[in-house]
Write a protein that binds this DNA or RNA. Structure first.
Length: 113
DNA sequence: AATATGACATGCT
DNA sequence: AAGCATGCCATAT
């Protein structure tokens, strides 16, 4: 029953649900999408979507709150720029802890309403 | 079909 | 702290 498309849809929905000015880790998104432990699926989904939709992919960072891309790379630069544009402070390639989704409730409410 | 790779996470050393 | 090892799932070769 868990179709790839279904998983991807859930993941994209969770990503889209991240409030502006905040970021969430791959693990958080996966968990909220009903796929605990499948963080790589999130990465895969984002890579598939990349560029096509207006998906806020830049709001997804690693669990240690670091940008997933290689420091200095183009994508890295792009993501940090987007985040800064949303008021997210980035220091040493790391996102400010306060900008992360604080409690699960935040993302939950964003997804479930 | 088997192995290696990737926008990851967690745990142990 | 930083690095190594294992789990996980889909793709690429």
């Amino acid at each position: 029953m868990p179709d790839l498309s279904a998983s991807a849809i859930a993941i994209l929905a969770a990503v889209r649900a991240i409030p502006r000015g905040q970021v969430a880790s791959y693990g958080q998104v996966a968990a909220r999408a009903g796929l605990p432990g499948r963080a790589r699926l999130v990465a895969w989904a984002l890579r598939q979507d990349d560029g096509e939709s207006a998906l806020p992919w830049f709001r997804v960072v690693r669990a240690d709150r670091r940008i997933a891309f290689a420091p200095g790379s183009e994508d890295y630069r792009r993501q940090s720029h987007h985040l800064q544009a949303e008021g997210v402070h980035i220091t040493g390639g790391r996102v400010a802890a306060a900008c992360c989704v604080k409690s699960k409730t935040d993302l939950d409410r964003a997804v479930w309403g």
